[in-house]
Design a protein around this nucleic acid. Structure first.
Lengths: 195, 195
DNA sequence: GTCTATACTAAGATAGAC
DNA sequence: GTCTATCTTAGTATAGAC
């Protein structure tokens, strides 16, 4: 018998990507073997190569999909309203989006150095576009006089670092809901930028 | 000839630790081999085992040394002054200390998952002690009414995430000095906590 | 599309000579 | 204290059968 009972080509691809994401997030890209991924899916290692040319592509495509979804989601949500409302929306969006996919977020931040140079450039470009979206809000608010900012660029970096930090400690069973955490962080961001 | 010209037991140990730190920071613990470390030092792989029982100990001791130095340095610097002065000192200290040792910082944040369980507990305990140091300052300031904080714990986590973020983008050749960056961040932190 | 089998490379760690 | 040589295990990726 050449096929395992229940195997199904239509679902194997997604299952491989899901298993790779789970394992990369938990143990790190370099520490995970193709054999481990295959075992999680329930196939032999060789079968993975029907779905990906190599291990590197598995990482790269996963990171690209994540960042493209991040950008598209924010662009869909951004109403270009006044800077204060836009910044509040950004804070809530960023925390909500990141807490909803902890594995993809973790990988996007931790595995940059395991990307081959060409792939790194692509991912870095996407990340910068997101940074710029926040910077644009801050710059507009500064220009309108509703934010008090010493340095717009640094403020954007500081806000993103602060908000992303939530993913390192937030637990579903904890004392605060996601919504409550977002409100508390928005309050700190609001004051940090003088709004 | 069993010895390479210039080999010297008194310096090999430190050189191994330095090479391991440089390589772990650049490529990640899992991606670095004992042979690579040995090559950097200029010895054969087997010789490393005169200085470390295994690869894991190399990582663990490096992280422990880093965090113990972080704690000791802050404890030496903390004057227990009024909360506002203490928070300002903390911001400057944190940025100065972290920017001075980017490799150790990077490893301390990225390689937690590559620690064996027992080692992880030790490192996590040290990290928590540092977090608590900041929390104590914030709590004191809140009690005295000089800080306005919705949630002391979250504020501590937010401040550390924000300050540590500097290490991901700061470049020596950039437009701002370390001192200037620390001042700008302190200004944002100060406002975020309502001081 | 998946299997088994395997080519090839490299990993961590140890033994014994010098 | 370091070397060379080696044990054992495991990695990525491919070939050919079914």
């Amino acid at each position: 018998m050449a096929r395992t009972a229940g195997s199904d080509a239509a679902t194997t691809g997604p299952r491989i990507r899901a298993a790779a994401q789970r394992l990369f997030a938990r143990h790190g890209y370099a520490a995970v073997s193709m054999r481990q991924i295959a075992a999680e899916v329930g196939v032999q290692a060789g079968a993975l190569y029907n779905y990906t040319p190599d291990k590197q592509s598995l990482l790269f495509e996963m990171m690209r999909a994540h960042l493209e979804e991040l950008l598209a989601s924010w662009e869909a949500e951004d109403e270009g309203a006044d800077p204060r409302a836009a910044l509040r929306a950004f804070c809530h969006f960023h925390i909500r989006f990141h807490l909803a996919r902890p594995e993809a977020v973790f990988i996007a931040y931790m595995e940059l150095r395991n990307l081959e140079p060409g792939n790194f450039e692509v991912i870095e470009g996407l990340r910068k576009r997101y940074e710029t979206a926040l910077e644009d809000i801050l710059r507009a608010g500064k220009a309108e006089g509703v934010f008090t900012l010493v340095d717009t660029k640094l403020a954007a970096l500081a806000v993103i670092a602060m908000l992303t930090g939530v993913t390192t400690w937030y637990r579903e069973e904890g004392r605060l809901s996601r919504e409550r955490v977002a409100e508390i962080y928005w309050d700190m961001v609001r004051r940090a930028v003088g709004a």
